[in-house]
Amino acid sequence: MWSFAILLWELATREVPFADQSPMEIGMKIALEGLRISIKPGISPHLSKLMKICMNEDPGKRPKFDMVVPILDKMKR
């Protein structure tokens, strides 16, 4: 689910997250420091909230895809 949030961020910003770091640096910072991407201004509040929920530090609190699909359906209306 965390990776899905990253994908949403990439689609919304059209940028590469952590572009200034090597894959090893990113992996270590995620594991050791809980590295997260910042939600940029201008991203839909609904999409921002979904990304934050999907990146919850506690993986057990992240939604399942069957919970995300209805949220996405509401967003496209």
Rank of each mutant, 00 (worst) to 15 (best):
F18P: 04
S22G: 08
M51Q: 04
K40P: 01
A19L: 07
P17M: 12
L11H: 03
L32T: 10
Q21R: 11
S48H: 02
G42V: 01
G42H: 05
I43D: 00
A31G: 09
K40D: 08
Q21V: 10
I30S: 11
R14F: 07
H46P: 01
A31F: 01
H46D: 13
E15F: 00
P17S: 08
P17H: 08
I43C: 00
M51H: 03
Q21K: 15
P17R: 10
I26F: 03
R36M: 11
K29N: 10
H46S: 15
G27Q: 10
G27E: 09
E25H: 09
R14V: 03
P23E: 04
I26S: 06
M51L: 06
A19T: 09
M28V: 11
F18T: 03
H46L: 13
I43L: 00
E15K: 15
L47K: 12
M24D: 09
S38T: 15
H46V: 11
E33A: 13
I37S: 01
I37F: 01
S22M: 07
R36C: 10
K52N: 05
L50I: 02
L47D: 14
L11V: 14
K49S: 12
F18N: 03
T13D: 10
E33M: 12
S22E: 08
E15Y: 02
R36I: 12
E33P: 02
K40M: 12
E10C: 09
G34Y: 03
L32S: 09
K49E: 08
S44L: 01
P41H: 05
Q21C: 14
E15V: 07
V16K: 11
P17W: 10
M28S: 14
M51V: 11
I30T: 13
M28I: 13
P23L: 04
K29P: 03
G34T: 01
P23N: 05
E25S: 15
M24L: 15
A31V: 04
P45F: 09
L35G: 02
K40H: 09
I43P: 00
T13G: 05
E33K: 09
L47H: 13
P23I: 03
F18V: 03
A19H: 14
S44F: 00
E15R: 13
S44E: 05
L35N: 02
M28R: 15
R36T: 11
A31N: 07
F18Y: 14
S48Q: 06
D20E: 15
G27A: 14
S38L: 06
K52W: 06
F18K: 06
M28E: 15
I43S: 00
F18S: 07
L32N: 11
G27M: 14
R36Y: 09
E33C: 09
P23G: 07
A12R: 13
M51N: 04
R36G: 04
I39C: 07
P45Y: 02
Q21M: 15
S44I: 01
L11M: 15
K52Q: 12
K52L: 14
L47Q: 13
K29L: 07
I39K: 06
I26W: 03
A19S: 11
S38W: 00
E15P: 08
G42D: 06
P23Q: 05
S22Y: 08
I26A: 05
I43R: 00
S22L: 07
H46W: 01
I26H: 06
S22D: 07
G27P: 02
M24A: 12
G34I: 07
S44Q: 03
I26N: 06
P41C: 10
L11C: 13
P17V: 12
M28N: 14
G42E: 05
